[in-house]
Design a protein around this nucleic acid. Structure first.
Lengths: 318, 318
DNA sequence: TCACATCATGAGCTAATGCTCTTAACAATA
DNA sequence: TATTGTTAAGAGCATTAGCTCATGATGTGA
């Protein structure tokens, strides 16, 4: 077993070397092959491996004018603390490409601080992408806290537990929320939340210096539906009641008001604060999410946004 | 003026966009050209501009990255043909773990060549470790030559005769140096070196296509002392005269100058060449050897180095 | 030990890229 | 207005990269 692992590590080592020589030193794959004593093809594979394993991180440091303008307009319009807009591809209006890097950049900025911070995270694909883009660093001074339960309806761990990945990458203390995402009843939620260790987490989350959350829409592809927390009937009810999106499983409508529904009565996520004085950053893009994002902005549940060009442009027409 | 600046900014904007599309979105330059409404060549130029303007930041998240950076820095600083840095695996600042494998890899690369080569070797623990790591192969085309005498002061064979082991592993011709490491006098050295068969070896060594040497320090644990070539008195004299290290028993100081001393007058090793156009690779690590390595680099006795992370970092602070 | 599966390797081909050289466009100046 | 110097654009070519397929090595379980 250990030998296999050893080999695997050796291979990653070589991949890292190849990646470095290729991207940092600007060598050709032929050169790299010579140096690593292998064929050009293998060198190519190593470089590809370095990329696919996420060892190579590319980031673009330039405020593209149009994106800046959009970001500024959105910041003004919705009274945000800040707004980042990344360039978009116009072929897929729902693409979230680039959000990971952009989010990671913002998160890293927070992490660079020497003064200890508590940073809270929601869940979701996009946040997970951010987590994967965060550089390996040593930040034991910070605390990473989860806003959302990490247990699904059938008792398994949730798939996108972001906080644990981030804490792992930056060697920080991690405070998970050891709860099912949705309690079986309003009473159960209350009971759960009164347990001392849960109450501590909730307090930590409430006092977080910065919060990062995804923004979910409520279609068939919504995590709440996919993970079985909302069945088709309930989805219909939600649609009728005007639900537009969810943030850490709290459901709100297009005007930004929390919807009076079964989910909101039972969800165990940290209660949300309206118009927090600390930054609460929503990260989301895609026209299929535009209403969810719009509702989130109006709700004042978030006070900062990272999105892309297409989405930003659409939000401004609304 | 302002118009020119405006244009320049627009260009950088486009460059950033092109860079983003290329590196983050993974589009081809053709695609980018279409999107930005320009020719493929211009797109290529924009991408190149984004890189040269430093808009694109590539980062490699792997411990190896630091080694590569250190290696590159050392190569630049000391004007080396190449430099390899292996990760420091443990806390022992004097560990030479990993040097064997790294050295062996470099040696094997030379051996893989079909054109016959003469490869010269010094002695020492680290080189011996390299020898042991070299794969069994069949290379009768190459010649392995010793740079150092293989007889100790009491007539026994030296313990770390590296060349013989390597020749053995790769089935190559081996040319040992049948001499005591230190002659009894300057005159004896001259006599020995004038013998035809010795002169042939010296010539072969001098013309070697590649040379691999260890780097020794001059403390109590120095091979020269352990093997009885330097007694305590002489060691004191050397220390006073500023001796910092030795390469195939030639003693030099911290500035890299050959020291005027008894050892250097009597040592029978192949005379060293300054700034050889052929690779002369020093293999050594450990903070206890740092001055010896520093002197060696400054002396131009070697023009390539294999060391480890800790040592490399130290060398750069010097 | 043999059959089978899995994986790594290198050849060969095509697409993508980088570079150079020529031509066109433009601005500054006499 | 003609001239000259400077810059950008495009054509064409050589290099580099990425991909697929055939092959051989390695490992695994009956």
């Amino acid at each position: 077993m250990s030998k296999k692992l050893q080999q695997e590590n050796q291979r990653l080592d070589d991949a890292a070397r190849a990646g470095w020589l290729y991207y940092v030193a600007g060598k050709t794959q032929d050169d790299i092959a010579k140096r690593l004593n292998t064929s050009r093809q293998s060198a190519q594979r190593l470089v590809a491996l370095a990329v696919s394993e996420g060892l190579v991180k590319v980031r673009l440091d330039h405020p593209i004018a149009r994106c800046m303008e959009l970001a500024d307009a959105i910041k003004q319009r919705f009274g945000l603390k800040f707004c980042d807009v990344v360039p978009a591809l116009n072929d897929d209006p729902n693409s979230t490409l680039g959000l990971g890097q952009a989010g990671a950049a913002v998160i890293e900025r927070e992490l660079k601080s020497d003064t200890p911070k508590t940073i809270a995270f929601g869940t979701g694909r996009v946040l997970r992408a951010c987590a994967d883009e965060i550089a390996l660093m040593h930040c034991p001074q910070h605390k990473i806290v989860s806003l959302v339960g990490n247990i699904t309806s059938d008792g398994a761990a949730t798939r996108y537990d972001v906080a644990v990945h981030i804490a792992d990458r930056i060697k920080a203390q991690h405070y998970p929320m050891p709860l099912p995402v949705i309690a079986s009843s309003e009473e159960e939620r209350q009971q759960l939340h009164q347990q001392a260790h849960i109450a501590r987490i909730l307090m930590l989350a409430k006092r977080a210096d910065v919060t990062f959350v995804g923004i979910g829409n409520l279609g068939q592809s919504s995590p709440l539906h996919v993970d079985g927390f909302i069945d088709n009937d309930e989805m219909g009810t939600l649609a009728v009641s005007g639900a537009a999106g969810e943030i850490i499983s709290w459901v709100y409508n297009l005007e930004g008001a929390i919807v009076d529904c079964e989910i909101n009565r039972r969800v165990t996520s940290t209660p949300l604060t309206l118009s927090s004085d600390k930054p609460v950053v929503g990260i989301a893009a895609g026209l299929n999410k535009s209403n969810a994002i719009l509702g989130a902005l109006r709700s004042k549940l978030i006070n900062a946004l990272i999105t892309n060009e297409t989405t930003a442009a659409y939000l401004l027409t609304a």
